[in-house]
Structures are given as structure tokens and as C-alpha cells.
Design a protein around this nucleic acid. Structure first.
Length: 522
RNA sequence: GGCGCUUUAGCUCAGUUGGUUAGAGCAACGGAAUCAUAAUCCGUGUGUCCGGGGUUCGAGUCCCUGAAGCGCCA
């Protein structure tokens, strides 16, 4: 069976789950569910990043151990995912023994490959961002001083990114010879156009690498909450070496030298962590002589009602509040439909309502409802035999089948909004088909043969639509399929191979009475 | 400051290697129909394709230049 491995980033436990985390995880879930339906051996991984100075300090502030803090936040993620119907196959915690073993094994591999050396590190460090800044970087960045005067970040000693205080650090450190991989990285990215998506991010990464890579400081001695360097335990392994290795440690690395499912088919990430995934991670893997992931996809950010989400504004959407108001399925649909994956987007309640009413309630929901209503009204819910297919019928079938193929292509490219747009086009075709055939006229005329044919095509088309939408809206589409199939439908008992063909429903099949799937929102 | 991207209908955007009357969805307006969650279907756009210059028989599509917005890097 063909493997399919999809990951989300591991989310940092210093942060509560918010819309951004939901978004990435839902996208990964849709891919995982789609590939399972396609018959692939799917492994879908998410998890949490627990280490680092920021977590250690936050825990100290509250007078608890870092692991206690982590436990609390991990719980928030682990309880949220089922509510959003996230079907991850594993959940990796960086504090777990299996992960630490993986990280230390990775370290040794890098060491054995001669890509690690000990040196001396002096730089400015921003604790909240876990970012290191050079003097030049600080000097060139504008920071507003507390008296309101313009100044640079070196003078004000502020982080150019978050504008919070940076501290000067000077420490013994191990370094990774990132610079040695510059040419190979460029070569790989150029030889594999799909490696980094979207294309704009690929260009950014290329120009970043081409501008010259510095060796990377990969150990710290200033805090202890992390994975110790093997053989030199006063050093803690840099959080990104630690975090990135989760994609392998969850697969059992290093116990299995060639972990099943590796390489990943796609790492979904936010655009903020592109460099770590598209530069550091591939370089590490090259050094460790492991295959590179096939694809890294950096998606965009959400604003809320046109405003940037931030803690200070207090406008971050709380998952619990959203779920109290909307079905998980509706949120999943909206997030992936509203904005092309890779671009920034705006979450607004009016846009959500509009999409819902027009695409889910009026188009799909009502088409299902009117089709089943007619089937029940005219034929007691029984599907009849297809008499003779005409041009109009064949066009509908062809469209549904083309839709299946095109959805597969779009899925391979993570073009979720195009997938949904394409499915919606078939739904519109279905509504047009109803008008063109006017089943109520056929019923009045007593043209049973034609009426049966029309209703059959409608129901069969709806079944294929529901199947394609199943990864996006698992509960709603299971309910839709149950109305059509008249039996309980779960993701486990469906597949494109057995259910994806036209004509699976037999004459004489009994459908249920319609129940509104997507009631209109006021 | 360097590199790159974007600028097309009221809104969000498609527009392949330059080629006949520039498209979609939503919104708006008019009509049809009544199976349906008053949902659906049909019809309706004289758009300076950001401005200016150029290449070409021909440019939204290529080149130069200007403006605005954005991203990455320094």
C-alpha cells in the first residue's frame, strides 16, 4: 500500500490553541482523510513542542515545573482536536522519551558526519521569540524608544521583531555547518519545483540561501529545559533541532533506521516557520543522510474582521467559542473554502454566513433536500431503473467524473479552495439538471421511465459529491450519505475504489426521507 | 537599501507558450418555475485590464519607466 505521511508543526505550549492552529490542523486532517479514502496507508502526525527557555521561564514565574505547565497546555490541544474531528494517527510530545531518543540520535548522526563543531557564540537574544540577532541586524532595525523617539534596536536593546527586550549573550556553543549545505540546498530546490509551496515562498527561500548561509548555533548552556547534548550534558540542544526531529522520532527513529512512512509527503506549516523547515531541516537531513520531505507548504495568516489577531487586542478567536456557535464541519469548510491555501485571509462572521447560506444551505443542502423530497413524493423513496440516457444525463455524469479527477489533482497540490469550487460546480450543474428536466412535470405527465432516470442521476450525483466532501465535513457528509444510502456510513466503510464509481446505487434501492442538512442561518 | 510579488467588473479573484466580441463566484436588477431549507433556473456588465512609453500585423499577456500595496533579506 502506498504510504502518505502528512504533518502539522508541533505547537508551542507557551501558546493557547487559536484559529491558526485550527487551520493548519484541519488542512492536514482533510489531506489525511482524502488519502485514506484513496486507499493509501496514511500517517497523520501532530503534537506539541514543549522545550525552550520561554516555557522554562513561564513555568518558573508560576512556580511550577516546566513539565507541569506543558501538561496543562497539552491537554488543551488534545481535547480540542476531537471536537474538530481531527483524525491524527499519533500525537508527539517533545518531552517524551521516544522523542528525546530521536533527537539525541539525530545529534550523533550530525556529529558523526562531521557537521558539528564547538565554538563560541556572542549575540543578542530575544527570549520570547527565541531568536538570535546580530549587532548589525539590531542597528539597522527601527525601534521606537520609550520616550517616543525614533531609534534603532541596538540603542534601545529591543527585538526588531517583537520590540521586547533583547539580552546580550556570550556562551560556548556547538555549531552546525549549515554553510556547507548551501549549494546542495539550492540545487535541490531548483531540481524540485514542488519542494516548497507556494511558489512565492520558494523564491524567498532561494534568495535567502543564495545570500549566504551562516553556521547555526545549535546548543545552549543558559537554560536546562530541553534535550541534553549527548556526552556534554551542560549543553541543551537548540529547540529547532529538537522540534524538527519530531517528524522522525514519532515514526520510531532511531530504532528503525529507515522509518516507515518517511519521507513525509507534506509538512504543512505557517509562513513564520518557513526557514526552519525549508533550510535548516533539509540541511540536517542531508547531513544525517536521510531522504528529504517531498513537500513543504507554508500557508498564510488569518485576520479577524479585518484586524490582525493579537493577545493585546484580545481579538483572538477562541476555538471553544467558535465551536459553541458553529458546527466543526462548517468551520472546516469555511476555512478551506474562503481563502486560497498559502494566502492570507480574513475571518469574518458575515463572510462565513454568506458562504454557508449560499454554498452549503442553498446549493448542496437544498439540492439534496429537493431531490430526496421528489423521490419520496413521486416514488416512495425507491430508485427506479435508468431507462435511456440522453445528452443531458451524459453531461452530468461526465461532469461528476471529471470533478473526481480534478479534485485529485488539486488535492495533490493542497489547493483546497479549488477542490471545493470544483465540487460546487457539479452541485450547480445538479440544480440546473433539475430545472432542465423538471421532474414535477414528468410526474404530472406520468412519464415514469424518464422520471426514474432523472431521479437516479440526481441521487447518484449527490452521492459522489458527498463522497468528495467527506474529508472536509466528515459528520455532515456522513449524514448526507446516510440519507442516500439508508444505512450508517463511516469513513472506515467508504473508499473511492468501492464507492467512487458512477452507478453504484442499484435500481430498487430505498432512500430515506430528506432532513435538512444545512439549515439557513439568519 | 537589495531581491521578489501584487495592482483585471461594486467585492473576491481566474486569465496557459502574446491572436478572433476579457471570464468565474458573490452582490445588484429583470424574468421563469413551484420539487425544495422563499431555496432554484434563465437573462443583464460602454470594465481607461494601475499610469506613461516601447517591441509587434496584433499585448491584460513581452521590454523600459513611474505610482501604490505587500513579502523576504540586509
Amino acid at each position: 500500500m502506498q504510504s502518505y505521511y502528512v504533518t502539522t508543526p508541533i505547537y508551542y505550549v507557551n501558546d493557547e490553541p487559536h484559529l491558526g492552529h485550527m487551520y493548519t490542523t484541519i488542512a492536514a486532517d482533510v489531506l489525511a482523510r482524502y488519502q485514506r479514502l484513496s486507499g493509501k496507508d496514511v500517517f497523520f502526525l501532530t503534537g506539541v513542542d514543549e522545550h525552550g527557555q520561554k516555557v522554562q521561564q513561564a513555568a518558573e514565574k508560576r512556580g511550577i515545573a516546566p513539565i507541569e505547565l506543558a501538561d496543562q497546555v497539552v491537554e488543551r490541544y488534545q481535547s480540542l482536536w476531537p471536537e474538530l474531528e481531527i483524525s491524527n494517527d499519533d500525537f508527539i510530545r517533545t518531552s517524551s522519551p521516544r522523542h528525546k531518543a530521536g533527537v539525541q540520535a539525530m545529534w550523533r548522526r550530525l556529529e558523526n558526519a562531521g557537521t558539528i563543531y564547538k565554538g563560541f557564540y556572542e549575540d543578542w537574544y530575544c527570549v520570547p521569540c527565541e531568536a538570535y540577532w546580530t549587532e548589525t541586524q539590531l542597528k539597522d532595525a527601527d525601534c521606537l524608544a520609550s520616550d517616543g523617539l525614533e531609534t534603532n534596536c541596538l540603542e534601545s536593546k529591543l527585538c526588531p521583531d517583537c520590540k521586547r527586550a533583547v539580552e546580550k549573550i556570550q556562551e560556548e556553543s556547538y555549531f552546525f555547518r549549515l554553510s556547507a549545505f548551501q549549494d546542495r540546498l539550492i540545487e535541490h530546490i531548483k531540481a524540485n519545483p514542488d519542494f516548497i509551496a507556494p511558489a512565492s515562498r520558494r523564491n524567498e527561500v532561494l534568495s535567502f540561501i543564495e545570500s549566504g548561509l551562516r553556521d547555526l548555533s545549535i546548543s545552549r548552556t543558559t537554560f536546562s529545559w530541553g534535550v541534553p547534548v549527548p556526552g556534554d550534558e551542560k549543553h541543551v540542544i537548540y529547540v529547532w533541532i529538537d522540534a524538527l526531529t519530531n517528524y522522525l522520532s514519532a515514526l520510531g527513529f532511531p530504532d528503525s533506521d529507515q522509518p516507515a512512512h518517511w519521507p513525509a509527503d507534506v509538512h504543512l506549516i505557517g509562513k513564520d516557520i518557513l526557514r526552519f523547515h525549508a533550510v535548516y531541516w533539509p540541511a540536517m537531513l542531508m547531513a544525517a543522510e536521510l531522504p528529504l520531505p517531498k513537500r513543504i507548504y507554508a500557508h498564510g495568516w488569518w485576520t479577524v474582521e479585518g484586524e490582525k489577531m493579537s493577545k493585546s487586542r484580545g481579538n483572538a478567536l477562541r476555538p471553544a467559542e467558535l465551536l459553541a456557535q458553529y458546527d466543526a464541519d462548517v468551520l472546516r469548510y469555511f476555512l478551506l473554502r474562503e481563502v486560497p491555501f498559502g494566502q492570507d485571509g480574513d475571518f469574518s462572521f458575515s463572510a462565513l454566513k454568506q458562504r454557508y447560506n449560499s454554498e452549503l444551505a442553498n446549493d448542496v443542502g437544498n439540492l439534496l433536500n429537493r431531490s430526496l423530497a421528489m423521490l419520496n413524493k413521486y416514488r416512495d423513496g425507491l430508485l427506479g431503473a435508468v431507462a435511456e440516457e440522453n445528452e443531458i444525463d451524459r453531461a452530468l455524469i461526465a461532469d461528476a467524473q471529471a470533478m473526481q479527477r480534478e479534485v485529485a489533482d488539486y488535492m495533490d497540490k493542497q489547493s483546497f479552495h479549488l477542490v471545493l469550487e470544483r465540487i460546487n460546480a457539479v452541485v450547480r450543474h445538479g440544480n440546473r439538471y433539475v430545472e432542465d428536466n423538471a421532474p414535477w412535470v414528468l410526474a404530472k405527465q406520468g412519464d415514469d421511465a424518464r422520471l426514474d432516470t432523472v431521479l437516479y442521476h440526481l441521487i447518484e450525483m449527490l452521492r459522489l459529491v458527498a463522497l468528495q466532501l467527506l474529508p472536509f465535513m466528515p459528520e455532515k457528509m456522513a449524514a448526507m450519505l446516510e440519507q442516500i444510502m439508508n444505512r450508517s456510513v463511516t469513513v472506515e466503510n467508504c473508499s473511492f475504489a468501492t464507492d467512487g464509481g458512477w452507478g453504484v446505487l442499484a435500481a430498487g434501492h430505498q432512500c430515506r426521507k430528506p432532513e435538512p442538512l444545512f439549515p439557513r442561518m439568519d
